[in-house]
Amino acid sequence: MKIAASDHETTVTARGTRGPAVVLVHSLGLDRRMWDPVLDRLAEGRRVFAYDVRGHGSAAEAPLPFTMAATAADLLAVLDALEVGAAHVAGLSLGGAIAQTAAVAAPGRFASLAVLAAPDRPAPEAFEERARLAETAGMTPLIEPTLQRWFTPDALAADTGGVRYARECLASFDPPTWASIWRGYGGLDVYERLRGFPAPALALAGEADASIPVDGMAAIAGRISGEGAKFEVVAGAPHIQTLERPDAVADALARFLPAEIDIP
């Protein structure tokens, strides 16, 4: 379904008809379909929503420049459009950074926060290099290095459905938009700002993540909420966890998220 998100429209995929609301925020370069492998499992006793972040998918024409503040406002606008006061929000990579940014801005809108393979501070030199390469050479030279950061060698060799989907997304991405997103991502400003986060939190690391290693995610977990977030490692998972280890990711999120259970 189409909904308004601040200054543009986006599309939301919905699963489930009852239970607490769960909103999923995807990674940079992909779209809401990144969450498809886990939707049905998470929708057992929950209402689950995945939307396209500005600059991606159905929201590709959203106004630029891309900023983290704008993406946080978009997430809150999605909650408003869905008529959800407070949601359980989970984000992967850029999606986790967006979720953290919104949680700093409006903690009362969060029933819980799950951060999957997401930083809490930027890497300005690397982000700028990716932006500049897209501007000067287009997307082609970025595709294989990006896939190598996102997937395990076995998945790349097998050319799995997840790898093919990601490659198609990258190949079709607009280079100026890609550059704007990476530069906006460089404005991430949540480090040490979620110490007092009042809701439950989970940090989920991929054992085989080449972008954010396990010890890095463990440190991030310690900086969320007063006592630190719950921390789990998904065995064998690379950076884009849902496209290689969807069952394990769904199980970890399902353990963390409350659900409306039928009582016989």
Rank of each mutant, 00 (worst) to 15 (best):
R193C: 07
F127M: 13
M34F: 11
A62L: 07
R15E: 08
S211I: 12
V214S: 01
A21H: 00
S211Q: 14
D120C: 13
A158W: 13
H56C: 07
A208C: 14
S6D: 13
L147M: 04
R32I: 06
T10E: 09
D120V: 08
G162W: 12
A203V: 02
P258N: 08
A199V: 04
P198E: 09
P198V: 11
T17H: 15
R33D: 10
R109D: 00
D215P: 02
A179H: 07
E129V: 10
M1N: 06
A137I: 07
I212T: 15
A248M: 09
G236S: 06
K230M: 12
V25D: 04
P246S: 05
E260F: 00
A117W: 07
P37Q: 00
P107A: 07
V38G: 04
V104T: 05
L24Y: 02
L257I: 03
G57T: 10
A14Q: 13
A210D: 08
D154G: 08
V234C: 03
M139S: 09
A131E: 10
P20K: 04
P153D: 03
K230S: 14
E144I: 09
S112F: 01
V25G: 03
V104E: 01
L116F: 06
G55F: 09
H88P: 08
Q148A: 15
R130K: 08
P175Q: 08
Q100Y: 02
T146V: 10
T140G: 07
E9G: 14
F127I: 10
G91W: 02
G108T: 05
L170C: 06
Y51H: 03
R132S: 07
M68F: 12
P122L: 14
P176Y: 12
L188Q: 10
I212N: 13
L64H: 11
S27V: 11
T10R: 05
P119A: 13
A218Q: 15
C169Q: 13
Q100K: 02
D36S: 12
A111H: 01
G16P: 01
M34A: 09
P141C: 00
R183K: 13
T160V: 14
Y165I: 10
I240W: 05
A106N: 01
R245F: 08
R149Q: 06
P175E: 12
A21I: 01
T152Q: 08
P258M: 06
R109V: 01
R109L: 00
A235M: 00
P198A: 10
R255N: 09
